[in-house]
């Protein structure tokens, strides 16, 4: 317990970094994911190919490589981002690809007939999407979206490769300084706490959305 209090300030400083990457990624990747998923249904084949290529690259290569590429690779080509920004950009474009696939699944589960009905009733395409399709999609995708969010909590630990000090690195430092595994145990508990909070929040929103099922 004493030891925990001793290293807690460092772990909390690392936690700040973890949470920063986490929230900015959520905020950035959800809208981008929706746009990408709509693009997949585009009438222009070049747009569809472009987006499929993007998703293929993002899902087909390790996030760790993408981080290295965004920070060091683009840096060599003259596009330099600061460390934190580079991490957030890499996470957003990666998670947007996964989320887009989830949203696509949601979009496809809305029956064709609803679009036709909306058109007969005189809804514009924008109105149909925002008033009829999107509310149903949100409800459908919550469980799989939650899965990705929980993955994201843990994936944030990859930022170590571009020298950012997240909570796992803080644990690493304490472990190598004090030659003990206890810091890892504490880090694990903090991750569990974070995922517990995320799980509860998702359950609640799921329940609330179920009202009009």
């Amino acid at each position: 317990m004493n030891y925990f209090l001793e290293i807690a300030p460092n772990l909390l400083a690392g936690l700040k970094m973890t949470l920063g990457v986490f929230f900015l990624t959520i905020i950035g990747s959800v809208p981008l994911g929706i746009i990408v998923s709509l693009g997949m249904k585009s009438e222009y084949f070049t747009v569809r190919w472009l987006i499929n290529g993007y998703i293929w690259i993002m899902r087909g290569t390790p996030l760790l490589l993408q981080l290295i590429f965004v920070y060091y690779g683009l840096g060599m080509m003259g596009i330099t981002f600061p460390r934190f920004e580079a991490a957030v950009i890499a996470f957003i474009i990666n998670y947007a690809a996964y989320l887009a696939e989830i949203f696509r699944g949601g979009l496809q589960s809305v029956p064709r007939g609803q679009y036709d009905a909306a058109r007969v009733l005189g809804f514009t395409r924008t109105q149909t999407f925002f008033k009829i399709v999107l509310p149903q999609v949100i409800k459908i995708v919550v469980p799989s979206f939650g899965n990705e969010v929980i993955n994201l909590v843990k994936d944030t630990s990859l930022v170590y490769v571009i020298g950012l000090g997240d909570i796992l690195r803080a644990g690493n430092i304490a472990a190598s300084r004090d030659v003990t595994l206890v810091p890892y145990l504490l880090v694990g508990l903090i991750y569990l706490l974070m995922t517990a909070i995320v799980t509860v929040l998702l359950r609640r929103s799921e329940k609330r959305l179920n009202i009009w099922r």
């Binding site: 460092n10 000090g165 300084r177």
Partner: peptide, 17 residues
């Protein structure tokens, strides 16, 4: 200067970070 802040005793962090 770049360092691996887990490298004791060359360069690392004390308990205050």
């Amino acid at each position: 200067i770049g360092l691996d802040d887990t490298f004791v005793p060359m360069g690392f962090r004390d308990k205050n970070g």
